[in-house]
C-alpha cells in the first residue's frame, strides 16, 4: 500500500494553520497590514542572510553543501534587495496614483456627488461586501474606533450608490462586540451625508448571534416604523467574521447528520441547492462584489460558500478605506462579464 501522508490530521509546514474553529483561544496570526518601515525591512533581510531558517542546512551538512547553500542563499538575499527596491518604486507610484485619485474623486460628504459618479456606470452590484481590518491602536485611524468610523463611512457610500445590502467582514469579529457604538456611528455618519431630518433607515444583522438591530438605538422614535414587519430599511448591514465561515458549515453538518439519524432527511437529499438555501439563512446571500482595503490580496478565511462568483477588488499598496478605492471597484465591476463556465 502506498504510504499516504494525511495532512488533515497534522499541522504541517511553517504556515500558521487554522485549528478547530471551536477553539477560540487559538487565533492564527494574520499578516500585519501596516507598512513596514524601510529600515526594519532592510534589517530583516540582513538577518535572513546571516541566520537562514531552512531545512536544507543541518548540523550534518558537508562543507560543500554548506558553501553552495550560502552562495545561493546570498544570491537570494540579493534578489530580495532588488525586490525591495522595486517594491519601493511601485509603492511610491501606487501611492501617488491613489493620492491623485483622492483629489479627483472626493465625495465631500454629499450623496449627490456619489450618485452622480454611480449613475455613469452600466451596472452596479445588488449586494456588496467589504473586508475591513482592525489596525493597531497607535496607527492612524486604528483601533476599534477607527474600524467603526471606517464601517460607517462605507455605509454612507453604499446608501448613496443605491445599494441595499452591505456585509462587513472583520476577521476577529470586533464589530459584533461593539454594536451600540456602531449603530450610533452609522446614524451620525448618515446624518452628516443626508441631514438630520432625512436620515436613511438601516438595520444591522449579526447572523452568528441571530440578532437584528434597527436604527441608532432602541429608544429611537423610529422604532414604531420598524415594528411593522413589512417595512424594509433602506440599508441592510450584515456583520460577518471568521466564525461565519467554516465553523458555520461544520455546525450545519452536525444539524444535517442529526436529521439523518432521525430519518427526517436522507444523505441523498443533501444537494448544493439545499445547502445553499440553509447557508443563505445562516450567513446571508453571496455578494456580487467584494472590496478589500488592504495592500495584499488575502481573503482572511472569508466564508467559503459566499465567494463563488463574486468579483474581488483591491488596490495594491493601499491600506486606507477611501472613496476612490470604492468607486474604482464599482467601475471595475460595471465592465465585468460573468460567464459561469461558458
Amino acid at each position: 500500500m502506498p504510504i499516504e501522508q494525511d495532512y488533515s490530521k497534522t499541522e504541517n509546514g511553517t504556515q500558521p494553520v487554522e485549528s478547530d474553529n471551536q477553539d477560540s483561544n487559538k487565533t492564527p496570526t494574520l499578516p500585519s497590514f501596516t507598512a513596514n518601515k524601510s529600515s526594519q525591512t532592510v534589517n530583516t533581510l540582513w538577518r535572513t542572510l546571516i541566520t537562514p531558517n531552512s531545512p536544507n542546512v543541518t548540523p550534518n551538512s558537508s562543507y560543500y553543501e554548506l558553501i553552495s547553500f550560502y552562495v545561493y542563499h546570498g544570491l537570494l538575499v540579493l534578489l530580495y534587495f532588488n525586490i525591495f527596491i522595486f517594491g519601493l518604486i511601485t509603492f511610491s507610484i501606487n501611492r501617488t496614483k491613489l493620492w491623485f485619485f483622492e483629489l479627483a474623486y472626493n465625495p465631500s460628504k454629499s450623496p449627490s456627488v456619489i450618485s452622480a459618479d454611480i449613475s455613469k456606470l452600466n451596472k452596479i452590484p445588488k449586494r456588496i461586501s467589504v473586508i475591513l481590518n482592525l489596525k493597531p491602536e497607535e496607527t492612524e485611524n486604528g483601533g476599534i474606533s477607527g474600524l467603526i468610523s471606517d464601517s460607517s463611512e462605507v455605509c454612507a457610500w453604499v446608501v448613496a450608490s443605491g445599494i441595499k445590502y452591505l456585509s462587513i467582514y472583520e476577521y476577529g469579529g470586533e464589530l459584533k462586540n461593539n454594536i451600540p457604538e456602531l449603530r450610533r456611528s452609522v446614524y451620525k455618519k448618515l446624518a452628516v451625508y443626508y441631514g438630520t431630518d432625512n436620515v436613511p433607515t438601516f438595520s444591522i444583522k449579526v447572523p452568528h448571534a441571530n440578532a437584528i438591530y434597527y436604527g441608532a438605538s432602541d429608544q429611537d422614535i423610529d422604532q414604531q416604523r420598524y415594528k411593522n414587519t413589512s417595512y424594509k430599511p433602506i440599508l441592510q448591514i450584515v456583520l460577518l467574521s471568521n466564525v461565519d465561515g467554516r465553523a458555520t458549515i461544520v455546525d450545519l453538518t452536525k444539524v444535517m447528520a442529526d436529521l439523518t439519524t432521525t430519518n427526517e432527511i436522507s444523505p441523498k437529499d443533501i444537494t448544493v441547492k439545499f445547502i445553499d438555501d440553509e447557508l443563505k439563512q445562516l450567513v446571508g446571500e453571496e455578494p456580487d462584489l467584494l472590496i478589500l482595503f488592504q495592500p495584499y490580496l488575502n481573503l482572511q478565511s472569508y466564508p467559503p460558500w459566499h465567494i463563488r462568483l463574486c468579483e474581488i477588488y483591491w488596490e495594491p499598496d493601499n491600506d486606507a478605506v477611501t472613496y476612490p478605492v470604492y468607486l474604482r471597484a464599482l467601475q471595475k465591476f460595471s465592465t465585468c462579464k460573468v460567464n459561469v463556465g461558458k
Binding site: 500558521p16 496570526t29 494574520l30 465567494i307
Partner: peptide, 16 residues
Amino acid sequence: TRLSDFLTWQLSQNPT
C-alpha cells in the same frame, strides 16, 4: 478577478 468556485474551502483554511 474572481475565484469561479475553485478551492474556496481550502483558501479559507489558511487565513494567510
